[in-house]
Design a protein around this nucleic acid. Structure first.
Lengths: 248, 248
DNA sequence: ATTTTAAATGCGACAATTTGCAGCTTTTTA
DNA sequence: TAAAAAGCTGCAAATTGTCGCATTTAAAAT
């Protein structure tokens, strides 16, 4: 394997998993850890990755969120991992654009063949990294805060889609108010997505459970599957379980 | 075996395997490694392959994995800086998605108020970082290689826009063939953008001047302003100047 | 067809790059 | 604080690249 090729492989792994361990790479490419270290140093010198003790991290140059900026990234990884299991080959999937969604996009298996519709710039970017995934961007005016397309055009487009699943991150969710948001335009788009999909999957870290905001996206009865980082049996989830939705 | 024949074989192997080793080629064609190296150097000079220690890599391999490293970034910054001067407050601007465009997006002044239309994920992201710029994403299926939306939907949307300026990066440009590209879908989108704008600005590093590819986007007569990193008086630009377009 | 000319090829010596290893230092972890 | 893991440095071996030069081959000109 040529040096450049190897470094390309490393970069690919980094962008895929956000981080790599020298030991893992050494093992999977069958070169000494020394060589890997030298590669990582070189890549770090060129600003391609961030070198840390034991391996390297994605510089998030390509990726839109700095890893360190993501709040409670570990919980979100757990959620994302659960979400991935719902996706099967050939599915049509509507997707929002929160940080949890991004985590999920990164965890999608390499060989998954599916079609993702999204209006989120970072999500589209992540989905597009997967060779076998078709990405359809639902365009419109970009809301700066959330990097997502909002507006009538986008909503009309979404209404013309019939998807198997809809993945949304929730800003706030409780049994009484359902999913709520603080941005009118974003709420409209999310609502349209829910309408356009057979099943709606909501991902939320437990901290956001039982909180609510000003604008209603949909009621809990519109949600089919709720994913948190908690064990599905956790008592915090009791009220949701009673409404009949599936909890992962 | 003739030289041309041999180089054709090498190219074939490269496109087949994404990478070749000088030693392997030398063995399988039964010529000295020296000859192989000379061939590879020649092919690399013509931009057909990327030469590395020990062999060569295919160009597409490079763009797939190493997408983050921008080739000739300095020239592109110079071009971008010139391009920025064309943009005035209140303008509606159509934009493609090459690396030069990205540079331009980063160089836009903080206080500029304008509306940018684009189908490029990275370009949209960069534009969206500017507080006073409205970004409209032209959605459709995302072409992985170029991270840009392509297809009938996008083209229809573009046709409904009447923009002041259209900024495009050129894959290849010469007086005879005009702007040419190697991706049919992308070429269609670029063409639609040119049609939808009053003025078309093409940005290209000088290296791409006087080269051409398979698919025609538009003739030089459709271009209003050409920007390269060269001094506008440079003799390399003489043929373009004679067609009457403005050179920056 | 033959000569002339230019290009292409292979070889050998030498330079540069890459890689793994051993010993030692630094950082992390328990 | 000590053991373990990771990193760094210098070094040697192997591989690869480069240069000049002789030889061969192909193309052009007569």
């Amino acid at each position: 394997m040529l040096k450049k090729e190897r470094q390309a492989y490393i970069l690919h792994q980094v962008s895929l998993h956000n981080s790599v361990l020298s030991a893992d790479l050494s093992h999977s490419i069958n070169v000494s850890e020394d060589t890997i270290r030298r590669d990582l140093n070189e890549l770090a010198d060129n600003g391609k990755v961030i070198k840390v003790h034991g391996g390297a991290l994605s510089k998030s140059f390509n990726s839109f969120y700095l890893r360190s900026d993501v709040y409670d990234a570990d919980s979100k990884k757990v959620i994302a991992q659960k979400a991935v299991t719902l996706i099967k080959d050939g599915m049509f999937i509507l997707s929002g654009g929160g940080t949890t969604i991004i985590e999920m996009a990164r965890l999608l298996p390499e060989n998954l063949k599916a079609t993702f519709f999204t209006g989120s710039i970072p999500a589209a970017y992540e989905y597009a990294q997967h060779p076998n995934i078709d990405v359809i961007f639902i365009g419109d005016k970009i809301a700066k805060k959330s990097q997502i397309a909002v507006g009538g055009e986008a909503i009309t487009k979404i209404k013309h889609i019939k998807a198997d699943l809809c993945f949304l991150g929730a800003n706030a969710i409780d049994c009484e108010h359902g999913i709520t948001d603080n941005d009118w335009d974003v709420a409209q788009v999310k609502n349209a997505m829910i309408e356009a999909a057979s099943q709606t999957v909501v991902m939320s870290i437990s901290e956001k459970l039982n909180s609510h905001q000003r604008i209603r996206v949909c009621g809990v009865d519109n949600i089919d599957i709720l994913i948190t980082e908690l064990d599905p049996c956790n008592h915090l989830l009791d009220p949701f379980r009673q409404t009949g939705l599936t909890i992962l």
